[in-house]
Structure formats: structure tokens, C-alpha cells
Amino acid sequence: MNRNVTSHATTVLYDQPPADAPQEQAPVVVRRGLMSRLVNRFSVLGLIGLFIVVFWLVIAFVGPVVAPYKGGAFTSTEVFGSYSAAHLLGTDYLGRDMLSRILYGTQYTVGLALAATVAASVIGTFFGLVAAVSGRWVDEVLSRLFDALISIPSKILALVVIAAFGSSIPMLMMVAALAYIPGAFRISRSLAVNIMTLEYVQVAKARGEKLFYIARVEVLPNMIHPMLADFGLRFVFIVLLLSGLSFLGLGVQPPNADWGSLVRENIGGLAEGAPAVLMPAVAIATLTVGVNLLIDSLRRHGARSHGGGQ
């Protein structure tokens, strides 16, 4: 506490007003509408992506509530029915309302994929940071371990694990996460290794900072942008992996169904162009496109702010 009086007898402190002046301006900036800030932050395509992603996230939570029929209820005698007032998106191969099936399926596709992606990215980033910050041996062991994991094709890995342990929601989540941890590890490690050589990290080291502080404050915030972009990509891959597994009949088990299972169930209607097979495919497509648009604009934004920094 008494440090500040020791050395600068000649120093004149700034008066209070100059220090406070910027603070008075600050709330004005905050009060600017949320909407206009969003518009400023994202491009038009990014906004579209954001809208689609938010839409599907909301549906994942409220889907069962807003669905016109109960998920598994047989509501019509007509199979592969076309668009109608009673069944907006037609009916499936057993005469169930397709709109309700998709709304119910959203929570499996989006929720499962989201949980798996969060798990994969968080675990991968964590180990990547640990590998980059700690010494050579920890890095070496972790890297070789994940190299071994990455050498197994993810779909084969998923098939083997599910064949061995059976399909259940936690198992699917675990398998999807496991398949995508090594990728997240690789990316976060290479980002962190680059940041570790920068001079502000060297300064922190010379200051005597602990590894945990360096990882948390100096490294992590500066790799979060690329990691978010990577998160988005990984989310899309996991949606596709889970849909693929469901299509093979190894995913979410009937009578529940995610979008992949819906496509598979109704594959018989493909010949007649039934909405029952088209609509879940459209749902998968919009989600992946939406996420990609969103992360593309995130990535561009990150690149711009980095460029500004130099």
C-alpha cells in the first residue's frame, strides 16, 4: 500500500474529472439498442445464420409444447400424405403428423449435438491448453494419445462402440464427443503453441506468473475466436454424424426419432416425393447452413478485430 508514495515525489496526479469523463460517456454506448449493435456486428448473411440457429434452438426447447399433435400419435389414415391444413407438412409412413415429428425430433438432433459439441470442444481445448503450456513431456504424451485416437475414422469408431454397448442417448453423446475431441485438441494446441511464443506471454513468464494464470488470462482469451469458429464447424459435423447413425438405425431408437431417423423411416416415400422424407432433410440442411453462416461471420469479425490490432 505504501509503495505508491515511495518513488514519484515529482509526479502530479491527474485531477479527478479527466479520469471520470470517459465513464460518463460509457453508459451512452451501452444504451444503444441491442438490435442495432447486432446489425453492426454481423453481416446480412451472418444475421440470417443467427436467426436460423436461434430459431432451431428455441424449437428444441418449446417444440413439444407447440406441436399440434403428440409426438408418436397416429393421426391420419393416409400414409405419406401431402401438405394439408390438418397436417401442414403431411404425414409419415404410419400416418403420423410430420410437423409434430420434426418438432419433437429437434430436441434430439440439436440438444444431443449441442451437448456433444460442447463436451468435445471444452475437453479438447482444455487438453490443448495443458499440452501447450506445460513442458515437453506432457505435450508429447497428450499429442501421441490424441494422434492414436484421430487415426480411427469417427464413423467406424461410433459404429463399433454402439454395436458393443448398444444405443442410448448418453452413449450417442459420448461417442460423438469422443470422435471430435482429437480435432479440437489439435486446433487448440496449435493455436496455443503459437500464442505461447508471443512476447506478452514471455513477459508474463518473466514476471513469475504460474502456468494456470498464463493459460487462463494470456492464452485462452486470444484463441477463443478461432475456437468458436471451430465449435460451429464441429457442431455441424456432429449433427451429420448423428443423423448418419440414425439413418443406419443406430441412433435415437423408435418410437423417438431425430431428424436422421425421420429420413430413414420415410425413405419409402422418396419415390413419390413425399414431404415426409423431404422435410427432415430440409431441417438438417437449414441447421447446417445456418450454423455455417453464423460462424463464417464470427470468423470474419474475429479476423477484422485482429487486423485492427496490428
Partner: peptide
Amino acid sequence: QIVFQNADTALNP
């Protein structure tokens, strides 16, 4: 204390 040449990379952005 050490002060580096390149001020751009010596401050955490």
C-alpha cells in the same frame, strides 16, 4: 523487468 522490441506482440490484445 524486461521490455520487448515489438510493442504489438508484447501486449495481450
